[in-house]
Amino acid sequence: MSWLERIRKGPGTQKKQRSSNVPEGLWKKCAKCSAPLYRPELEKNLDVCPKCDHHLRIGARRRLDIFLDKEGRSELATEVLPVDRLKFKDTKKYKDRLAEAQKATGEKDALIAMQGTLKGMPVVASAFEFAFNGGSMGYAVGERFTRAAATALEQRIPYICFPATGGARMQEALISLMQMAKTSAILERMKREGVPYISVFTDPVYGGVTASLAMLGDIHIAEPGARAGFAGPNVIEQTIRQKLPEGFQRSEFLLKHGAVDMIVSRHDLRDTVARLLSSITSTPLAEAITETPAVAEAESQTEIEDQPLPLGEDEQTPS
């Protein structure tokens, strides 16, 4: 389009021409292989790209939805809400940031915990909502995690957590740091009491969460290609002043270096976890329930999929 045409047609025409006729959100591009993916198909495939097996990021509620049996779920610790103890303010008030995140995600904070069953076996499960402030851990996340663990401990049933986080939440400063100690302490109690805890690494897991609740499982499982570490790649590159090797901090790296027990596809997660827990707890599985429950509703995740990793939420280059 020449400058003359542009003037003639008025501003904004260029943009309009580029938009497609496909209804918003029906198609999605795979972040890894760029294949166009038809959303209903993608959802049926548990948000795993059928072309390249890339595991797309999914929200906390959907995560629990595809993991737990359909019946008999109840959400735990919903009474725990975020608190702005420091009246933290940067370019925005933390209070306002919280309100925005709550509006955008429909969640009160970045962790959802549920009690339910896995192939008939009573379990407690929790998942991080990465879209909520980068899945960062402040008081509410730490407290909800801890209450969920306490429920599992009290009923002596397994606890499974799916971290997806940039680390500790800096707007709650030291209170966030103390959540690392808190969650580690309750997990140590579970360990001493012989109540199983499984940590499933889903992309990404960083900072203070890796260095606490994510790394204290009896069994560590990682989804294919998930990134996990203490310091983010940027911070490490700045410190050592060299490029990081390909695949650094990905699941395959974690397996090689002994940080996780196995890499399991999202499709096999229910089966694998159920099998492991059945052996650990000597509980026979209810054979009838073997299918992955069908997914109820679509959930928009596009906006976070392309976001870069919120690196260094709590670990920066020391100066």
């Binding site: 100690a181 994510a214 790394m215 204290l216 310091a231 490490i236 410190t239 670990e315």
Partner: peptide, 27 residues
Amino acid sequence: PGAYPGIDSEERGISEAIATNMAVMSR
């Protein structure tokens, strides 16, 4: 100034080391 952010730190499990210390110190 912080636990060392380097490749070797990550390879040898800096996160696990920190987490385990907190867990054990709690009891």
